[in-house]
């Protein structure tokens, strides 16, 4: 059974057993506008919670994607390199960015759940 959590920087993270998948939320994808390029982390890269892990670019803005929790990158969604539009079309599905092996699942547990994130977005 997978579980999804959210950050106040508008990343989502879904935990399936040992492995977590990270992407940006629908709210973030809509705020960015048309995504034209993503820069993905290499497998094996160590990331820390809140540290930069990827970059997403629209025509006029470049934004860092932060790792919601620390760990090691196990794979990245290379389909985005050819089709960055997937981030706009399906941000919380096919538009995922990278997968992580978490070093501390406690960090995951501290993140916002779906309802908390929805309230957070409403407050913006």
């Amino acid at each position: 059974m997978s579980e999804v959590r959210y950050t106040d920087q508008h990343e989502w993270i879904r935990l399936d057993g040992e492995e977590a998948t990270v992407g940006i939320t629908k709210y973030a994808a809509e705020s960015l506008g048309d995504v034209v390029f993503v820069e993905l982390p290499a497998s094996g890269k160590a990331v820390t919670a809140g540290g930069g892990a990827a970059v997403v670019e629209s025509v006029k803005a470049a934004s860092d994607i932060y790792a919601p929790a620390g760990g090691t990158v196990t794979s990245a969604n290379s389909a985005l390199e050819k089709e960055p539009s997937k981030v706009n079309e399906d941000p919380e599905g096919e538009g995922w960015f990278f997968k992580l092996k978490l070093s501390d699942q406690g960090e995951f547990a501290k993140l916002m759940d779906k309802d908390a994130y929805a309230k957070f977005v409403d407050s913006l």
């Binding site: 670019e57 006029k60 803005a61 470049a62």
Partner: peptide, 12 residues
């Protein structure tokens, strides 16, 4: 590709 440039990336 102006996201490479100073007016967007600033210090990056």
């Amino acid at each position: 590709l102006s996201t490479r440039e100073q007016h967007i990336r600033r210090e990056k």
